[in-house]
């Protein structure tokens, strides 16, 4: 349920080859006291081609790979066979979706998903009697 590998808009064989080919970016996800962090490898994705959305607690990350490829290039070998990255995650209710921050540099996306104040770890003062 976490991931989607390919978004198929049509099953028509004729249009298959013209569909966009979607790749799953490699991610690191870890947690700190105040936030969850998502780091995704998206080489060739720029700030302009990156789209991040939260809808009904589904976080979607999408980005088009920008390659300046001259006309008439024929392939000899390819490990990246797609022109966009996409991946989705389900968020828990503790994430403050309005406070999500994103930044991309050198093809690495850094997402910070802050937790709501009420869900953060708190220290409880012990009072003397």
């Amino acid at each position: 349920m976490n991931d989607i590998t390919r978004q198929e808009t049509s099953r028509d064989v004729e249009t298959r080859s013209t569909q966009e080919r979607t790749l799953l970016p490699a991610v690191d996800i870890f947690e700190e006291d105040e936030a969850l962090h998502v780091i995704a490898d998206m080489p060739g994705v720029t700030r302009d081609t990156l789209r991040i959305e939260v809808d009904q607690h589904i976080l979607s990350i999408e980005g088009d790979i920008q390659v300046d490829m001259p006309e008439g290039v024929s392939a000899t070998y390819a490990e990246i066979q797609g022109n966009r990255f996409a991946r989705r995650f389900t968020l828990s209710h503790e994430v403050d979706t309005d406070a999500i921050r994103a930044e991309i540099s050198n093809g690495v996306l850094n997402l910070v998903l802050p937790k709501r104040e009420s869900h953060r770890r708190r220290r409880i003062e012990v009072q003397t009697a």
Binding site: I65, Q66, V67, M69, N83
Partner: peptide, 11 residues
């Protein structure tokens, strides 16, 4: 011209 990496079609 951009984004047609799928031209790199291999088995």
């Amino acid at each position: 011209m951009f984004g047609d990496l799928w031209r790199f079609e291999t088995p």
